[in-house]
Design a protein around this nucleic acid. Structure first.
Lengths: 109, 109
DNA sequence: TCCACTACTCGGCGTTACTATGTACCAGTA
DNA sequence: TACTGGTACATAGTAACGCCGAGTAGTGGA
């Protein structure tokens, strides 16, 4: 993905992470790994941690420290009610955008 | 649309404008008006003009000054070859994102 | 004359993702 | 013991983008 993608991810990456957490709780390193598997190869670790800190400060997630077999303790994030609201709002906005863009793409040929 | 949308528009708004221009040449005020018709009610005028200046500086568009019946002369933008390349790249990135998100949404229930 | 509409420009702001770097813990191994 | 590599989190600085607010200017109608 090119540099365009960097800008396009803004705001969307947060939605993606919230969606991942809505499936089940997860910790930063795990989320980074899952994103890489799903094709987001070049998303920096630091980006995810910064994002997680932000949504923690906005109280969209609950946090639990869990000891790890390997390495430092994990911060496991789980989506709370407020987080679910934000996620729902995200999907609404996304749907709106996706519809408009689909129309534009059709019209463009 | 909420404040989330502001961030989500980043990068995408440029694609939208390029797509509009790929249909046919247009000038700033006209583009703003068309966006409003299509539901992007709260996109600031200044945002569009700034975006147009950026894509002009990156040589994605050709510019022609055309006198207007009402008000100051119009700057009519038309997509050139380079702009078409960037638009194509935009659609590729968009498709990628749209696919991933569709998967996430399915998995989420 | 005043207002509304058309049309473009500019400076400053907040948010976001990226880069680069650092800390720390553990297991295997030579 | 020392080294390497994988796990796990944190942070400082940067660039880009969209928003806000204000300003300039031309036209036509009340």
């Amino acid at each position: 993905m090119g540099k365009q993608a960097t800008e396009m991810l803004k705001g969307i990456l947060e939605g993606i992470v919230l969606a991942i957490l809505s499936d089940r709780p997860a910790y930063g390193y795990e989320i980074t790994a899952r994103l890489r598997e799903q094709g987001f190869a070049d998303i920096a670790e630091g980006t995810i941690y910064a994002l997680l800190l932000r949504i923690e400060q906005r109280s969209l997630v609950d946090v639990e420290k869990v000891p790890s077999e390997k390495g430092p303790p994990r911060k496991v994030y789980s989506l709370n009610a407020q987080g679910r609201d934000v996620l729902a709002e995200f999907w609404r906005t996304w749907s709106f955008l996706a519809e408009r863009l689909e129309q534009l793409r059709e019209g463009g040929r």
